[in-house]
Design a protein around this nucleic acid. Structure first.
Lengths: 211, 211
DNA sequence: TAAAAAATCATACAAATGCGGTATTGTCGG
DNA sequence: CCGACAATACCGCATTTGTATGATTTTTTA
């Protein structure tokens, strides 16, 4: 281990922050370079000393950890972010990934797992607990249900729905398809009935497979 | 270990198939219940004896492992599928997940990791090597262009846009946020100006990063 | 070929929406 | 302290949209 992996910790709870710092600093090949109690503090000081890996708590007072990552990722593009949280809630996982985090682990993970994860993350991997990976994997095969729903639509209805999904209005679609606006509206109404929705946005969401 | 985890293996290469079978069968708490050389053979025989976990090679002669999973998942919804492959190619990972697989590991993984992965998969996790997880994580923040556009929005505007994206109307959003409908409309108007759009669907498309 | 489904068009009404202007309040940085 | 900005709110108007009812013509399919 010539050059240790430099780590920063953002965590508001004193006890956890200290524990993590000691764990990281005590291990071979790791160096805890900074700790912060808040997202704001991290945003202030981290850009100057971009570390290799940041352990980021999500539930912080003031700005939350996800928004913090979103900003830091811009300022330190090479830094890797690992979200550390107590719970594996659906929404936050995706939000964190979108924000630029590359790892997502639970605080209850055993210490050696944590260090292993830091190493993997630093080497270009994306360690995450398998329960969290499951959430992500599941988000991919939501499609087997969706296509069935669209099967009930006629080709013409799909054609119209497709244009609606591009943000076109009744009139525009009518012009494009050389039919009367009332016809288009009738089709849209039928689409709504079949998909059990009551607005364009809902219909388009179903069409594009995002619910 | 009262009831062992039942496993089936689909793999065309004799040597690998045998090795896996011996590994699984020899381990405590696992039972290799069947092995198949081809996807077709698996499709013929597996539905009758739905096992807990199927190790599926991707590169099979005839039908490939991904299509095989797609079909089997319909017939055995409770069975978990683990893709085993030599390489971690981009496309196949996503295809496999979409097809219904829940784990994706490399054949070069050490035996004990494989058994561990089978257990995790059976317990509802989604084990995957961290390099593969990285590919998936990356697919979430592929939107480096979109966030810039959304940066011009205020938090409140994003909040409102988020609710619009769920198909809520002016009034509904107003109720949810405890403000007047006219306020919401004003916000929406401002959003449209900033994003240079003229309708909900267009705004939502930009927000969700698909245009 | 007869029945079912799809595509077309019309009329009508209420609600939602898009667009414009104006104004008050609070916060924050310079 | 001031200016910029965000959030709040109102009014008004023209248009779009969601819903309903009804009808005609083509196409598909049983």
């Amino acid at each position: 281990m010539n050059t240790p992996i430099t780590v920063a910790i953002v965590e508001d709870k004193e006890l956890i922050r200290q524990s993590l710092a000691i764990l990281v600093d005590g291990a071979d090949g790791f160096a805890c370079q900074a700790t912060f109690e808040t997202a704001e503090a991290a945003l202030d000081h981290l850009p100057g000393q971009c570390v290799d890996v940041v352990l980021m708590d999500i539930d912080l007072p003031g700005m939350n950890g996800i928004d913090c990552v979103r900003h830091l990722k811009q300022l330190c593009p090479t830094t890797q972010f690992m979200m550390c949280t107590m719970y594996d809630e659906d929404e936050t996982v995706f939000e964190a990934l979108k924000a630029g985090a590359n790892a997502y682990i639970l605080k209850r993970s055993p210490p050696h797992k944590l260090l292993e994860a830091i190493t993997e993350l630093h080497e270009g991997g994306s360690p995450m607990s398998s329960t969290i990976a499951r959430k992500i994997a599941s988000s991919f095969h939501i499609s087997p249900t969706a296509p069935n729903e669209l099967d009930v639509l006629t080709p013409r209805e799909r054609e119209i729905l497709d244009r609606l999904s591009k943000g076109h209005s009744h009139k525009e679609v009518a012009t494009e398809l050389f039919v009367s606006p009332t016809t288009v509206r009738k089709h849209i109404f039928n689409i709504y009935e079949k998909l059990q929705v009551h607005s364009k946005v809902e219909a388009v969401n179903k069409y594009l497979g995002r619910k």
